[in-house]
Design a protein around this nucleic acid. Structure first.
Length: 510
RNA sequence: CGGGGAGUGGCGCAGCCUGGUAGCGCACCUGUUUUGGGUACAGGGGGUCGCAGGUUCAAAUCCUGUCUCCCCGACCA
């Protein structure tokens, strides 16, 4: 008997289709009818909420405070930083009116209600926050300023994909101001490392942290750093960015202070963010042909109990048994937190519910029937180890008294297993021994899901960099980042033949 | 924004070419059956065919416009 998977499409057949089906089948999110905007359903939003909580703890632990700035930004704020406005001008949603009135075909914009100055729906908040910084900052004693906000932003993208690129998305954006370059660069790199740890420890998603090349910099930044994750189709996902903005925004917005000598100095600022794109990264890092596999640290429910109800009087006793199991599991800790356990007592077939939770990627599923209750057992299914070699489900019988401890141990094992698996996949798909464009072409032609190359290059700028970009663009490739620690290289540049300066990652990307 | 495809009960689709009673599978509801692995049978409910115009005695079907989604490009977290 051949194994039947829970999803109708496999990753190998059509990865893009698999991604969409996996999201739909897991009740993560759905289209909203508004271009590029999605409805996040409880399971999808619940995962985001877990990410938020874990990252928020890290942000606060590193000395940042949360605050909130408005959704609307006066258009004129963008005029001040030339590169910044260039970068975002083509994708801004703009509010021009504040009232509707009845027209011949229903409601229409009231021309009388035109705003004197249009308001931009924030694509990012450097401009408003910088304006506030300019007011808040007077003295060297006010520094550093370290804030963060959790917000929604809008970028009018031409092509959207669930979680990966939506017109509106949720994120955190951190903004800091410092006395000098060294402190600001230290902050930028500290945040990069915080993101790396968050991705690896909480999302079980291995990433490569490093500096983006000049052409991939955030508009207005002096330097941009990213964490890059490799999806199962070999493509790179930029999963978080941290920018050193120098004094570019300070000079544009007059963010300055008097130093100990009474001299005016421009502050050095940073900004950094991760978004709901991370959810897409988790799906494409860990999902399999049976649906999602959510790492325990971010799973809204880590354990789901499914009673095998029969619409008979004995159901009541079974439910009581399940509740006692739930209670003992909820009292246990795993990965430093109380175990999140859910009793799915809705009326319905147990087998249906089982497959629904498999597709959602709940790490552990406990199926409990009358036979289990009588014997004082539970039947456990591990989402990351679903099948036996013969293709049958790998259910295990666990004694009631052992279940809390078993669950606790398994959850931390699964967290580690998902990371180890993804890391092995990522590492084995980065080639670093290729030094000619012919070999590069061969690498990417050999496999439609080819990974990345780490190559030597001469770090060109200006025209020369544009030439490299064009060489890559013709191959549907992009420069990802220069992994931290790879800033020095010998040999020659794969693109130009000039002496190499550093090692850089090249790959297809989302 | 350029090229391609598509919008018909909750989901997936057929019907359109050649205009004439809106269909199928899954899901859903009810009942019976079954019960340790996505049960089976019977009955039932649910759609003015994306939206707006037009042609026609008559439009899911033909014409025009528009909105939305998917795929491939260019742009980006």
């Amino acid at each position: 008997m051949s194994k039947k998977n829970a999803l109708p499409v496999t990753r190998a057949d059509d990865f893009a289709k698999w991604y969409q089906v996996a999201i739909a089948e897991a009740d993560m999110a759905e289209e909203s009818g508004v271009r590029g905007c999605m409805i996040m359903r409880p399971w999808g939003y619940g995962i985001w909420e877990r990410m938020q909580r874990l990252l928020d703890d890290r942000i606060k632990a590193t000395g940042h405070e949360n605050c909130y700035f408005p959704l609307f930004i006066p258009l004129s704020y963008f005029a001040k930083e030339a590169e910044h406005v260039d970068g975002f001008a083509k994708e801004m949603a703009v509010v021009t009116h504040h009232r509707l009135k009845a027209g011949p075909k229903g409601l229409d914009v009231d021309p009388q209600a035109k705003l004197e100055e249009p308001l931009v729906v924030r694509p990012t908040s450097e401009t408003v926050i910088g304006t506030a910084f300019a007011r808040w900052l007077q003295s060297w004693r006010d520094l550093p300023i370290k804030i963060n906000q959790w917000a929604n932003v809008v970028r009018w993208e031409m092509r959207t994909r669930m979680f990966l690129r939506t017109s509106e998305f949720l994120w955190q954006e951190g903004h800091t101001a410092h006395a000098n370059e060294q402190e600001a660069v230290d902050e930028t790199l500290m945040i990069l490392e915080m993101y790396r740890q968050f991705a690896q420890d909480d999302l079980a998603m291995p990433v490569v942290a490093g500096e983006k090349p000049e052409n991939e910099r955030f508009p207005g930044a002096v330097s941009t750093y990213s964490i890059e994750a490799m999806m199962q189709d070999g493509k790179a996902l930029q999963a978080g960015t941290s920018h050193y903005l120098g004094t570019n925004f300070s000079e544009a917005q007059n963010i300055r202070y008097q130093d100990k000598e009474g001299q005016f100095q421009f502050a050095h600022t940073t900004s950094w963010g991760v978004s709901t794109r991370m959810v897409g990264g988790v799906i494409m890092s860990h999902g399999d042909d049976d649906g999602l596999r959510i790492p325990p640290r971010i799973a809204p429910y880590q354990v789901v109990i499914i009673p095998m109800l029969r619409d008979k009087p004995e159901d009541e006793a079974l439910l009581e048994y399940c509740k006692s199991i739930r209670q003992s599991i909820a009292a246990a800790n795993s990965l430093g937190e109380p175990v999140r356990v859910h009793l799915d007592s809705r009326s319905g077939k147990a087998a249906q519910k089982r497959w629904a939770w498999v597709k959602k990627g709940a790490p552990l599923i406990l199926e409990i029937g009358g036979r289990d209750a009588e014997g004082g057992n539970v039947t456990l299914l591990n989402r990351c180890d679903l099948y036996q070699e013969n293709g049958k489900l790998a259910s295990q019988l666990i004694a009631k008294d052992d279940i809390a401890q078993t669950v606790s141990g398994l959850l931390s094992d699964i967290q580690e297993q998902l990371f180890t698996e993804a890391q092995a996949r990522t590492e084995s798909n980065i080639r670093s021994d290729i030094d000619t464009l012919d070999a590069l072409d061969a690498f990417f032609k050999a496999d439609k899901h080819a990974g990345w190359l780490e190559v030597s290059w001469s770090k060109p700028t200006g025209e020369a960099l544009v030439a490299v970009e064009e060489q890559l663009k013709a191959r549907k490739l992009t420069l990802r980042n220069v992994p931290s620690g790879k800033e020095i290289a010998e040999g020659i540049c794969i693109f130009s033949g000039n002496p190499a300066v550093e090692r850089i990652l090249v790959g297809r990307s989302y």
